[in-house]
Design a protein around this nucleic acid. Structure first.
Lengths: 239, 239
DNA sequence: CGCGACATACCAACTGGTTGGTATGTTACG
DNA sequence: CGTAACATACCAACCAGTTGGTATGTCGCG
């Protein structure tokens, strides 16, 4: 449930006894990453404003001194969290198998299938840290807002090539652009997280993603064939 | 800046002396409503956790005593705000003209057109207070989460009759249900607000609603005609 | 009708705990 | 040994909630 951090304490080298906070903690130099990981986890659960620096430090097993050594302020930390979120998710999606499909539409639908599969566990586990922070900070911090916008729209950008190839193959109507559909996809995902959070029922989040898949199919599938109902999702190995 | 209390120390009772904070303030009995209205406005802008009770009181021109007289706690206030939001928006949508269209699909698309038109000004003005609070409170307060869920899903419910009629007319594939499409619509709207907040560009929020309209048309329009591109929105009078 | 008893709506000041941030050590590593 | 990476102790501001009080409306009863 926790994710990172849990079982990896044992770099502690008790021999040589340079004991520190590492009864369960990190080796020197890992405080920053630990704080960022903890930040993603805690902010996804409670939001940014409701999260205190002390909680962050406790979750990362470091002290406040370490926090303000690495981050100028809580706001700067939030910006770093957004960037950290962007880079860790980017690595994960880059390694996914949907890129290997031959047809561009299958790559697009494979992405959707993966997103649907990722909706599992509690909302704090499947929702988007950037989307959450956006809601809280858009009016009070341009730095946070822009970092979140980068996370969301850069990720959308990773869909554009497949989408524009699929649009070309399907000869879809000219009002659907690759960039627009990529953003629409992110909008539906963000909205599905909100429905999932509100209802405390992840099937409602998945349902929205299912309608998104159906919509994309209607737009991107070769016009002659009627769009069939829900497909069985491509099984995605989680390497 | 102080608000209430300003001119009232003098109990001077100029004429019969029923003077109160009403130099600019409210009459007796309006504090509760004023606080709720202020709550919607401030929470849409800054979120729930970042909003202090003092700020709420300042915005509503009342004192903290009045706040805690009407609301047991900040959490109870948030629940009341969600219900207030639900009822005020319900009144607005019930009075809208899209209900008057003859064809069910036109009522559905009229709703979408209205939603698109409502996206104007700053995100704090067009976004959903219930969606915003959901993100912050889903893990920390069941009462708030449920009040927000009611606001969102009850509103979705107002679309179901038109959607199921439209589905029947269009003989749409069986995997699209009225309730599911209604929820999907809300998901897209919530997501569009997030994109609008992140980008600080309402045209991106409107764009997502445009794709939603296109998707609904593809699903709900009689199958023989190919779905045309974006329609010019039905002009909606704001009586 | 008048008047006392009560209830409601509010207000100013206060409180105890919390929060983001700082000032000042201390420790490991190159 | 110098510097980056921490830790400890502390603080001033702030925050949700309380207290004790006042002004105003309302209701029952003689």
């Amino acid at each position: 449930m926790r994710a990172a951090g849990e079982g990896r304490g044992e770099a502690r080298g008790e021999a040589r006894g340079q004991a520190r906070g590492e009864a369960r903690g990190q080796a020197r130099g890992e405080a920053r990453t630990g704080l960022l990981d903890a930040g993603v986890a805690v902010i996804r659960q409670r939001g940014l404003a409701a999260t205190t620096v002390d909680e962050l430090c406790a979750a990362a097993h470091v002290t406040k001194g370490a926090f303000f050594h690495h981050f100028e302020s809580k706001e700067a930390f939030a910006v770093a969290v957004a960037r950290h979120w962007a880079s860790t998710t980017a690595v994960m999606f880059a390694a996914a198998t949907y890129h290997q499909a031959d047809q561009p539409i299958d790559r697009v639908l494979g992405y959707i299938d993966l997103r649907e599969q990722l909706i599992d566990g509690s909302p704090a586990e499947y929702s988007c840290a950037a989307g959450t922070m956006t809601q809280e900070a858009f009016a009070t911090s341009v730095a946070i807002r822009e970092a979140c916008a980068d996370a969301i729209f850069d990720h959308a950008g990773t869909l554009e090539d497949d989408l524009s190839a699929a649009i070309a193959v399907a000869r879809a109507p000219g009002d659907a652009t690759a960039a627009g559909l990529a953003r629409y996809t992110q909008a539906v995902l963000q909205g599905s997280f909100i429905l999932g959070k509100a209802s405390d029922d992840l099937s409602l989040a998945r349902e929205a993603v299912g309608y998104l898949r159906d919509s994309l199919r209607r737009i991107l599938e070769p016009a002659q064939t009627a769009a069939p109902p829900f497909s069985s999702p491509i099984i995605q190995e989680k390497t």
